[in-house]
Computed example of a mutant assay.
Amino acid sequence: MDQTRSFVAVAEELHFGRAAERLNMTQPPLSRQIQKLEKSVGVQLIERDNRKVALTTAGRAFLADARKLLIAADQAPLTARRIARGRAGVLRIGFTATSALSILGQVLSTAAEHLPQVDIDLREMVTREQLAALNSGGIDLGLARPPIDPDRFESKLVQTESLRLAVPDEHPLTQLDRPVEAADLRETPLIMHSPLKARYFYDLAIRHMPIQHGNVVHTVSQILTMVSLVGAGRGVAFVPESAARLGIAGVTHLELAEQARDVVELHAIWRRNHRNPALTSLLEILGDTPLRSGHRPG
């Protein structure tokens, strides 16, 4: 690196005396530095005689890269310190599709405001995929649904929202002047969550509203698919409140009567033994920053 600094000084001053003074050294060792560099590179970089100093064609090309190299060398310690303090680096965040409708944007805004040097790598995954990726080190942070293994993961509740009933716009249930009750669904075609691929929402639905399984006409795993089927008039569906933000035409979201307020939980989840300083910094910031998505935070 000393040879590179010597070359850049001579190339910019085009005078060995001034370059030596700039580097706080004498001319003989400066000349030796240039000679060693040219020998290492294998070409002549500087033409010099008693009257002038000039760059060769190769020297002019080398100067551009040498300047970049010095800038990178000067920045490297600062970057290392920022990474160690969690102020730079990469954060890989897994998120569910519905979290993108609610809390994800605020997490990203918070990171951009407080950790602008941290690069965010987003991965859309269902909860079980996030947990597997956290285990393998594929992601650093998940925005996912319970249950959470406390022996492997730490977590923070970042959002609660209500469970709602999505119905076609002209459905008779839209004429009720009250929340929807179980008896109202007795003869209603139901689009239900898969008990295997969407277990969390399946359990929520059957816990808060008695389900007539004979009414189930479709079983799906994605909220977007579910609401789209409702919009197509195929039935009604239990969805999180934030699903209204999908803006799918022909769908009305109704309140449920069975204690369904603020029962849908979203957690930030991370490995207990993580070693990413940027994650530590983000978690500290999230701990001090209320996250709001139009719903009452948990």
Rank of each mutant, 00 (worst) to 15 (best):
P150I: 01
F62Q: 08
G214I: 07
Y202W: 12
D2F: 08
L229D: 02
L185P: 06
L229S: 10
E181G: 13
E187V: 11
H295Q: 12
A278V: 02
G214Y: 04
A183C: 04
K156I: 02
T98K: 11
N276Y: 02
A58K: 08
I103E: 05
A133G: 06
V167K: 09
N50Q: 08
E47D: 11
R275M: 06
T174A: 07
T219E: 15
L173E: 06
R271M: 00
I71M: 01
F153M: 04
E187L: 15
R81I: 00
A183Y: 01
N273C: 03
I148P: 01
A76C: 02
H208F: 14
R18Q: 14
I148A: 05
T252F: 05
V43M: 09
E161P: 10
E129Q: 14
I191F: 02
A72V: 14
I46L: 04
R207H: 15
I223H: 09
A54L: 09
P116N: 08
P116F: 04
I139M: 09
R152P: 03
I120S: 06
L291C: 10
D177F: 01
A112W: 12
A84L: 02
V41Q: 06
F7N: 00
M192I: 06
L104H: 06
L70K: 03
N50K: 15
V167R: 07
A54S: 11
